[in-house]
Design a protein around this nucleic acid. Structure first.
Lengths: 137, 137
DNA sequence: CCTATAACGTAACACTATAACATTTCGGAG
DNA sequence: CTCCGAAATGTTATAGTGTTACGTTATAGG
């Protein structure tokens, strides 16, 4: 294991480009928005974006926002292990997304699952509203 | 207010048909699945379905499942007032959806919102996994 | 009756995602 | 080094989801 190889498992060219687009963006991006951003880098078809996104989500570097059909770069430090359980507060004014770890909420949902014998695989928690910055101004 | 007018605010023909399709279904339905079910009733275009769904969701008789792009009839008794805050457990085996009120989780998310000065408008909580019935068999 | 509003009908279109198939890249076994 | 298999990539076509635009019909209130 070299000094370079432990954080991001050596993204491929396309994965790196897509991840770069997401980290460079202010907020979430749709797959087609990413495609447009990467035309100059040789991207031609949605599948190129979706394939990279699939891997990035699997690795845990990117999250999918179900209520937006869009994607954001994960804001956690690497290897946080919480990628399956993050929550998101989405500002409907400015479009920015705040990722956080909803520990208590999660515990209560896990408790419900135990009680109902529901084998929980993944939780989706997305809050819609107006962020502090947009409320002020 | 008459004896008839308080529960379901007099659905229109299309709204009634769409709501009927959803209550008659085992699990959630996509808009296009509803459209196909209602061809014989004169439905021709997706917009007819979407317009009815919009109203039904607004009224609180139907919920949208963001992670499925699908819709389910609300399982609460009428006028429960919790339509903005329901949670859903979606079985990936049989496709059935269990709606419940995630009180504790909700409180914790509301507390987070207060602390972050995030003006919470709507919460989306969807659990994916395997239901008790499917785990057994 | 008249009018304003909501609901409806239809066609076209835009956005999101995947299927199918060919080709290339790249790391490891021999 | 060469060969091979797995993963990644490229391209076209298509499936699935949702909206715009425009015109018509139904309905409730004055």
């Amino acid at each position: 294991m070299t000094a370079h190889s432990h954080a991001k498992p050596d993204l491929t060219k396309n994965q790196g480009l897509v991840f770069g687009a997401l980290t460079g963006a202010e907020g979430p991006l749709t797959a087609y928005a990413i495609l447009d951003l990467l035309r100059d880098d040789g991207f031609r078809a949605p599948l190129q974006v979706y394939r990279a996104l699939d891997k990035l989500v699997e690795i845990g570097l990117v999250h999918r926002l179900e209520s937006l059909n869009a994607f954001v770069a994960c804001s956690h430090p690497v290897d946080c292990g919480e990628h399956k359980t993050a929550a998101f507060a989405i500002c409907e004014d400015c479009g920015k997304v705040d990722e956080f770890a909803p520990d208590a909420a999660l515990q209560s949902l896990q408790a419900w699952s135990r009680q109902e014998k529901f084998a929980l695989a993944k939780t989706t928690i997305e809050l819609r509203g107006t962020c502090a910055n947009c409320t002020t101004s």
